[in-house]
Design a protein around this nucleic acid. Sequence first.
DNA 1: CACTTCCGTAAGCCATAGCTAACCGTAAGC
DNA 2: GCTTACGGTTAGCTATGGCTTACGGAAGTG
Lengths: 110, 110
Amino acid sequence: MAYGSALQALADPTRRQVFERLGKGPMSVGRLAHGLPVSRPAVSQHLKVLKEAGLVAEDREGTRRIYRIDPHGLARLRAWVDQFWETALDAFKAQVEQPDEQPDDEGNSK
Amino acid sequence: MAYGSALQALADPTRRQVFERLGKGPMSVGRLAHGLPVSRPAVSQHLKVLKEAGLVAEDREGTRRIYRIDPHGLARLRAWVDQFWETALDAFKAQVEQPDEQPDDEGNSK
DNA sequence: CACTTCCGTAAGCCATAGCTAACCGTAAGC
DNA sequence: GCTTACGGTTAGCTATGGCTTACGGAAGTG
């Protein structure tokens, strides 16, 4: 259920901005906060959520922490999406070919 | 900003269950609700959100509506994730090769 | 034409999540 | 040693969002 926390983390617009900002390269917390519409503590909180979801990682450099995107969480999210992508696309193609056919699952339960 | 609504839609656990349930094949609202821990109107509300995010589509069949996964929203989400995936993976590989190198972005602003 | 089934919508309630302000620890500089 | 920069944590407020109950409308059935 790791993809759940990733989806939840990326759902918030501000937090997604933090993440997208890191997509352009690693950055310190202060630099990250500067240019975002929220206070620095808020950015820290967002980073915590993103870190727990495996979406970012930190490197300490003196007194500052350099955050970067962590491929691990991204990989899990990608795998989850792909799983639906394949089957959905298959179903879509099948429906285009046979617009009025139900495979086998027709009939009311109860 | 279409991927935003998709991420927001899939963030909620119950709504994600609805979506995942549709991953196994199209289903009516009643069937969908039966087996989920919430009431049928709640499922309807979730389906509305998913539909507005382009993640599901409906086919009317008499008085019942058959919902299925819509590839469109999924495609947009996939594209967004992949965009980060590529650059993050590149950066990751680069860091493994040169663990203590900063490309060019070092120096304090302000 | 009742009557039933299926489902979307509205109103209202309550828990959660994001924000700010204040505080504290840690590392560097003098 | 003191002081400053950096950033994580807490407390408390408010808004958002998901849930249920109640209602209404549309399509099949007799």
